[in-house]
Computed example of a mutant assay.
Amino acid sequence: MFEQLKDLIRSMYPGENTIPLHRPSFSQEEASAVAACINSTFVSSVGPEIGEFEKLIAKFCDSGYAIATVNGTAALHLSLHVLGVHSGDIVLTQSLSFAATGHAILQTGAKPVYIDIALPEGSMCPEALLHFLEEECKQQENICIHKASKRRIAACVPMHSFGEPAKIAAIAEICRNWSIPLVEDAAEALGSFTEGKHCGTFGTFGILSFNGNKIMTTGAGGMILCKNETLAKRLKHVSTTAKIPDPFEFRHSEAGFNYRLPNLNASLGIAQYKKLPAFLNKKKTIHREYRVFFQRFCYKLVNNPEAQSNHWLNTVIMNSAEEKEELLQFLKVHDIQARPAWYPLHRQQHLQSVTDLPLPQTDWLYSRAVSLPSSVPFEAPCYD
């Protein structure tokens, strides 16, 4: 099967010596947009492209508002900060995630508690979440309290793994019933929909990433999706060092962050956004190629069959940890980049949980998952 997979990947990316896991797709449109921004001299955190980019993403996601940030980690930290997450609190999340999810929690002074994932989508399991809350927590004056540690459950941060939508509607309902603010880590899920809504719009906030390896990029960048105007204004205020508008004086209303996306990056994002429909269509084709191939050999992909995924990374589930390692080494020898899932956060010393919950599905998927090349292999046409 390995040889046939190598041939399939080579056929999808003809003429390339080393095939990357995921890379950006640029053309003259991006170069012209960035050059125009440079010529305007508005290259830092003030400029018209930032506002335009925010409006485009807010409209695409139907989120009401979108606040651009320097990266997805900053977007997540800012979201938790504005929600009032602080030292001594607990934030529920999943261990199968990029370390930035855990690091943003630590930045607030809170501690993580990891909820196991569900398959085949590889994201937080609603049943596991509800079981933890019913067994180990209580509600006290509309606050959820972890009984053993007496800490407040200040937020829940599920992640849409590999761009595949989580069972987020069920998670959102549980969070509402238990008075827990929901922040979706949709860093990889731009263009993914479930229950008729874009990922990142089910909770109080949702965050996106525009890192260089995402489905569209601003080089580095992130976005917070928000439907509440008051909260959106506060997010923007705090992300701009909490500076009070004044033509002369530098006065600040509170401790703020320098988290705004530079205008230069936003200009790149606008050009990339025009190609997003083409990117998503090609992603469908790539996913279909992999799905048909692996069905022949009785392997499954991480996938939510009930949702509309952007198929950011196609991730196959191998039969064993040994077979996973064999595939990674085989593809490496043939100059094809692949990677395992993120090393689980609960196994990393600085990201230890307040309580040790069993995470059998997380450990099982990590031991078998291999993400395969999923870049858009052509220069997508730019259109309005």
Rank of each mutant, 00 (worst) to 15 (best):
S375I: 06
G269W: 07
H311Y: 13
N39H: 12
S253T: 13
A307R: 02
F162N: 07
R296D: 14
N228I: 08
M12V: 15
K324V: 15
S192R: 02
E16H: 04
Q94F: 06
N71H: 10
E127K: 05
F42Y: 13
A170Q: 05
G15L: 11
R251C: 13
V354L: 10
F205E: 04
F53E: 06
I90E: 01
G64R: 01
A187F: 06
F26C: 03
H77Q: 07
V46D: 12
A187R: 01
L328G: 00
L351C: 07
A338V: 14
R260Y: 07
T194L: 12
L331F: 08
R176I: 08
Y13S: 05
H103K: 08
D7C: 03
G196A: 10
H81A: 12
P381M: 07
D185F: 03
R10E: 13
E136W: 03
V376R: 00
D363A: 13
L130D: 06
C199K: 00
Y273V: 10
Q272G: 06
E229M: 07
N310T: 09
L76N: 01
A266I: 08
N71K: 01
E141D: 14
L351D: 04
G72A: 12
P373K: 05
F297N: 04
S375D: 04
D116K: 00
C382E: 04
E188L: 14
G222R: 03
V183I: 14
A266N: 03
P344Q: 07
C125D: 14
G269D: 09
L345I: 14
P48R: 11
